[in-house]
Write a protein that binds this DNA or RNA. Structure first.
Lengths: 227, 227
DNA sequence: GTCTATAATTAGATAGAC
DNA sequence: GTCTATCTAATTATAGAC
C-alpha cells in the first residue's frame, strides 16, 4: 500500500521517454469524468493509453491514487489557463477582473469539459474523494472568488441581495452546463458547444447576465497578455 | 429478453401490497443518480429496498429496463410538480409564467436532487440512454420552454442578445448546481441547500438574475393553486 | 519499463425451491 | 412474490518473465 513506487517526473534524457505515464493520466481523467470512478475500469484506461493493465498498479499503486494524480493535473491546468491567484493581484476594478476570470474560465471549460464532468461526478456524493477535492483544490480558489464577488458587490456591479454561496453555484452552474451537457446539446439543439463562436457567445451571455455590461473583460484572450 | 414479465401496476386489492416494485424504483433512481448506471449494482439496490437481488430481474428483466422505468417515474413526478404544459396555457404574461415555472422547478429540484443528478449523469455521455432521455422526455419540455423564452423576450423581460440554447443551459445550470453539489456546498460553505429559506433565496436569485424583477411569480406556491 | 498469467472479488442474470 | 444457489463474465491487484 505504501509501496507506491513513485517515478520521478523528469526522466526523459533523450527525446520524450516519460510520456507513457502522462498519457495514462490524460485518458484516466477523461475516463473518470465520463464514466465515474467505478464505471471507468483500469483495463479500459490502459487500453486507451495503448498499454497493458498491469502498468497502472506499477505506476500508481492503486486506482484511487491514479484518480488523485489525474485530478491534480486537471487543477494544475486550470490554474495555468485561468490564473486565479495572479488575476486577483492585477489592477482594474473587481468587476473588470471578475469578467476576465469568467471569460477565461469559460474558455477553459469549453476546451476541457472533462474538468467539470469530474467535479460534478464527485461533488454529488459525500465520499472521501469529494472531501479531498474540496479541501485540497476548491477551497483556495473559492476564497479568492469570494473576495472578488464581494469586491464587485461593493462596486455596485453585482446585486447585493444575492449571497455568496448562491452566487457561487449560480455562476459555476450557468457557466458549465452547456459544456457539461454537450452531447445533449448537440442532439437537442443541433448546436456544437465547442464552436469558438458558441463559446464566446456563452461568455458574453454570462458576463451580461451577472455583470450587466457585455463589453467587460473582452480584451484579454490569453492569461499571459495581462501578466 | 422479451420476457419482461410486466406486472400490472394496479394489484393491491387489500391495503398496500404492490409497493415492493415502487420501493425498488425509488431506491434505483436514487442509486443511479448517485453512483451512475455502472456504479449502482442491482444487489445494492435490492438491499436498499429490503429485498433480494433476484427480484430485480423478476420485476424488470434487465438492469437497463429498471433504469428506464425509474427515469419515467422521475419525469412523471416532475410533470406533476411543475406542470409545464398546464402552465403554458395559463394566463398572465410570458415573464410571469416563466417566473412561476422557475420557482416551481427550483422547489422540485431542491426536493429531488436525484433528478438533476441523473440528468447530468446521462447528459454527459453520447450513449443510448442519453438519446432515449432526450428524445422521449426532454424535447417536449424544451419546446414549451422555448416558446416561453421567446415570449418573454418579446415582452422585453429577457435580453434579446442571448440565444435560446444559451438561455436553456444558463437556466438549467444556474438553477440546479446548488442542489446537485449539495454535499460540496455543505462542506465548503456550511450551508444546507435543502433549508426552505435557502431554496427560496435561490429561487429569488434566479428570477432576479434572469427576469430582473424579484417579485415575479412569488404568489403561487403549489401547482394546484393556479389550476 | 512493459508484458502475461492469475488470484480474489464482484457483477448481472438464471434456475428452481417454497 | 420472494428467496437461495449458481453460472458466466468482468473487476482490481499481484507475481513474475523478459
Amino acid at each position: 500500500m505504501a509501496t507506491t513506487t513513485a517515478r520521478s517526473p523528469r526522466k526523459s534524457a533523450e527525446t520524450d521517454e516519460a510520456s507513457t505515464r502522462d498519457r495514462i493520466l490524460d485518458v484516466a481523467l477523461q475516463s473518470f469524468a465520463e464514466l465515474g470512478f467505478d464505471g471507468a475500469s483500469t483495463r479500459a484506461i490502459a487500453s486507451l493509453a495503448g498499454v497493458n493493465q498491469g502498468l497502472i498498479p506499477y505506476y500508481f499503486g492503486t486506482k484511487d491514487a491514479l484518480w488523485r494524480e489525474a485530478v491534480d493535473r486537471a487543477f494544475a491546468r486550470l490554474g495555468e489557463a485561468v490564473g486565479v491567484s495572479v488575476q486577483e493581484a492585477a489592477d482594474g476594478s473587481s468587476g473588470e477582473r471578475l469578467a476576465v476570470l469568467i471569460r477565461r474560465y469559460i474558455r477553459f471549460v469549453a476546451e476541457h469539459p472533462e474538468f467539470v464532468m469530474m467535479m460534478n461526478e464527485e461533488g454529488k456524493r459525500d465520499g472521501e474523494r469529494m472531501q479531498w477535492i474540496t479541501d485540497t483544490h476548491v477551497r483556495p480558489i473559492f476564497e479568492i472568488m469570494t473576495r472578488l464577488f464581494e469586491g464587485a458587490r461593493d462596486e455596485g456591479v453585482l446585486p447585493t441581495e444575492i449571497g455568496v454561496p448562491h452566487f457561487h453555484y449560480l455562476f459555476v452552474g450557468a457557466t458549465a452546463a452547456l459544456f457539461h451537457q454537450a452531447h445533449e446539446c448537440r442532439r437537442l439543439f443541433g448546436v456544437e458547444p465547442t464552436d469558438p463562436r458558441v463559446v464566446e457567445n456563452h461568455a458574453d451571455a454570462v458576463v451580461r447576465l451577472f455583470l450587466g455590461d457585455p463589453e467587460l473583460g473582452r480584451a484579454p484572450r490569453d492569461p499571459q497578455e495581462t501578466a
